[in-house]
Design a protein around this nucleic acid. Structure first.
Length: 269
DNA sequence: AATATCGACAACCGCCTATAT
DNA sequence: AATATAGGCGGTTGTCGATAT
């Protein structure tokens, strides 16, 4: 037998999260940190799948998230990174502190894609569109000098993108990535390749910019005490919740929930 | 004012890999 | 070793507000 299922699909709520649900999830994570997501819904008193809780937390409730549109600089960085990484949004997001892969993906699809198309740049290959046409006719693009591509892009795009064609499929393997030797003088890209090496060394934590709510990993932005946790939440107008009670759980309730989880009973049954 | 269309973004779905059993 | 799930990821869809007709 394998693991236990993450949640029974019965009675699991879907759709937009309410302020009350957010409040419960925040309360729980701030109290207990990020533990096993499977257990979170029960322990936090939510009728949600653990996966949904994780997504809600990482994409919306994390305190280190920046809100609002990407800045020009961030947008430019996304374009550069996309030119070399393709649709690997999580890797791109790891380079933009406070931004999530989902947010970047959405911004790409709704803003950047159109912007590039308007500028005559293929958002997939980062090549000028007329070059794409030639490519389809002659299949000669593979021999197109990288420096020439970059010049074309810069002329067309007012220094947007430094693209190389690559990776039209987000799940493509590393063999589709450009030759790293081409970028050894580019600190940004060199850095990316180094990180890929880290991945291969089974050291994913080196690359990701995770927000771990473990006390030993708390950065300067992270609340280090309950009072501090409360203070950032109170500042967080986006939640639409101005009065987080922080009193819906106590040690007894959490222990009861843990016990019921272990015995297979749910706290809501 | 009512309806249609569009844009932005939150959330879900399904797949893949790592890992617990 | 085999099996099944957790967690993570990218693609897609759903929802809702803004704008146009």
């Amino acid at each position: 037998m394998g693991r236990q299922p993450c949640c029974d699909k019965l009675g699991v709520k879907k759709g937009p999260w309410t302020a009350e649900e957010d409040k419960k999830l925040i309360n729980f994570i701030l109290t207990n940190g990020q533990c096993c997501w499977r257990a979170v819904p029960k322990l936090a008193g939510l009728r949600r799948c653990g996966k949904s809780c994780r997504l809600r937390w990482t994409n919306y409730l994390r305190p280190d998230l920046k809100r609002g549109l990407l800045t020009e600089a961030e947008e430019q960085l996304v374009i550069d990174l996309h030119a070399h990484l393709g649709n690997r949004w999580s890797k791109i997001a790891a380079r933009l502190p406070g931004r999530t892969d989902n947010e970047i993906k959405n911004h790409w699809n709704t803003h950047i894609k159109k912007k590039l198309l308007k500028m005559g740049i293929d958002p997939v290959t980062h090549e000028p569109l007329h070059k794409e046409h030639e490519k389809s006719e002659s299949h000669a693009a593979d021999n197109f000098p990288e420096s020439e591509k970059m010049n074309q892009l810069q002329e067309t795009n007012n220094d947007l993108g430094s693209g190389s064609p690559e990776d039209q499929n987000s799940s493509s393997d590393e063999s589709n990535l450009p030759d790293r030797n081409l970028y050894e003088n580019d600190p940004l890209i060199s850095c990316l390749f180094r990180d890929d090496d880290h991945d291969q060394d089974n050291d994913p934590d080196q690359l990701q910019v995770p927000w771990e709510f473990q006390s030993e990993n708390l950065g300067s932005f992270c609340p280090t005490s309950w009072d501090e946790s409360c203070s950032w939440l109170l500042d967080c107008q986006d939640f639409g919740v101005h009065d987080f009670g922080f009193d819906c759980f106590n040690d007894v309730e959490i222990n009861n929930a843990l016990n019921s989880l272990e015995t297979g009973a749910t706290s809501e049954d």
